[in-house]
Amino acid sequence: MNEMTDKYEQKNPFSVPEGYFDSLEDRIMIRLRKEERSRRARLLRTFKPFMGWAALVAVVVLVMITVLPARNEGIAETQLDADFNPTTEEILEYLAGEVDLAVLSNEILGR
């Protein structure tokens, strides 16, 4: 192998066009930007047929997000009312403030 190394001392027999390495960095950056643009365009082309459906799904999701919580709040209030279980005294006390008890008792007794 030593003989071979001696004989083929010039190890790199290849060359490049003049100035190749000076412009390489810029050309790679240009190619990168081009690739990224065409990649985005490809992605857009791929998903374009589904965009109408995606918009529809977005609208449905939006409606669900905005309308359903409002309905849930109503349900929550109803549940709160159902849980409200006052005693007879509490009811009578409440009514005493609202109506005349004598009139009410006459109405109940059918007088």
């Binding site: 083929y8 027999p13 290849f14 060359s15």
Partner: peptide, 15 residues
């Protein structure tokens, strides 16, 4: 046919 090969015949044989 490589225009950018600058080696001599011996280098070419090695390649």
């Amino acid at each position: 046919g490589d225009a950018y090969f600058c080696g001599d015949d011996i280098q070419r044989e090695l390649q």
